[in-house]
């Protein structure tokens, strides 16, 4: 029967649609922008895009772990911000920055800042797995807590100095490539290796695929989810420190855009919000879609107030394609 024999090919198509759809979106966007603006498809602009998505990439890497477990982390931007401010707080600032900070040796300041993000991640983990607060709510609270810590430390000021190491990694270059791009690639690579080739990575997928079944297989589900939340927080911490150097200052609400961008990068890439499916390759595609979109809109000549709306609409379209691609599964 023709109908029956084409079923195999068809179900394969449907099965991989979740991965293909974001890629098609990306190619489509690149083609449109290249067509509309001669300055878009150039080597130097490619470099720009890479630099622009680096911080999001570090945040989204960690978030991928959380979303693969079928949880969510809304505190990513707040933790990044708090960590960045903590770093500045432990660094000697010029006289005109009027805060009671505690200057430490640079290396120690970095450790203290990372410790801040780690501890905030641990609090998330305890709230979600030990107390049983849904991650949506717990991390919403953490969003406020992170913002609060940042506000207390910086007191409405702007701090500029960060340790030299961070300054280099955030704004320096190596052989013409920005360090921050190198680090983003490394974080993505390590996350990918952990998710695909380690036992812990397998547990992440299994917990997201069927939590009950993972539990009945003797997997410590709470530990796995806790680890994912802590990894997410530490990635945000790293992004926050580099971001402060990248932007050249630490202040409140500096990272607010990264909440939406981080989640969008993961989800637009095709990782299922219901857990268990997707991964870093998806996140990379999602990052590129987002980066091309943000950058491309600056290259074409439209009302800058309209851009935000257009960006939102294109993201919505990408998400709709995604949701449909995910709903169409091979029939059981």
């Amino acid at each position: 029967m023709t109908t029956a024999s084409s079923a195999g090919a068809k179900s394969w198509m449907i099965g991989s649609l979740r991965n293909v759809a974001p890629l098609v979106t990306l190619i489509f966007l690149i083609a449109v922008f290249a067509f509309m603006s001669p300055s878009f498809a150039t080597m130097s602009n490619f470099g720009n895009i890479m630099r622009q998505i680096s911080i999001t990439a570090i945040i989204a890497s960690g978030l991928t772990f959380v979303i693969l477990c079928a949880e969510i982390d809304l505190s990513i931007a707040a933790i990044a911000n708090a960590t960045g401010i903590a770093l500045a707080f432990f660094t000697l600032q010029p006289d005109y920055v009027n805060i009671d900070n505690v200057p430490l040796w640079g290396g120690l300041a970095i450790v203290m800042a990372l410790l801040t993000s780690f501890l905030l991640g641990v609090v998330n983990a305890i709230g979600v797995t030990r107390i049983g607060i849904p991650s949506f709510i717990m991390t919403l609270a953490m969003m406020q807590i992170g913002a609060g810590i940042g506000a207390l430390l910086i007191r409405g000021q702007i701090a500029y100095a960060v340790p030299d190491l961070i300054k280099t990694l955030g704004s320096g270059q190596i052989m013409g490539v920005p360090w921050i791009v190198v680090i983003a690639c490394l974080v993505l690579l390590i996350s990918h290796l952990v998710l695909t080739y380690t036992r812990f990575g397998r547990y992440i997928y299994m917990v997201g695929g069927n939590r009950e079944a993972a539990e009945y297989s003797g997997v410590d589900v709470k530990l796995v989810i806790s680890a994912a939340l802590v990894i997410s927080a530490v990635c945000c911490g790293l992004a926050g420190m580099l971001g402060v150097a990248y932007f050249g200052s630490a202040q409140q609400n500096e990272f607010d855009d990264y909440l939406l961008d981080g989640i969008a990068a993961v989800v637009v890439g095709g990782t299922s919000l219901f857990g268990g499916r997707g991964g870093i390759p998806n996140t990379i595609i999602g990052l590129l879609v987002l980066g091309v979109l943000n950058n491309g809109l600056d290259h074409i000549d439209i009302d800058s107030f309209l851009k935000v709306l257009i960006r939102g609409l294109i993201l919505l379209a990408a998400l709709i394609i995604n949701v449909y691609a995910q709903r169409l599964r091979a029939p059981d």
């Binding site: 997928y205 069927n210 009945y216």
Partner: peptide, 8 residues
């Protein structure tokens, strides 16, 4: 349903 991972 509580033992197996259908997608895997």
């Amino acid at each position: 349903r509580s033992m197996l991972f259908g997608e895997q």
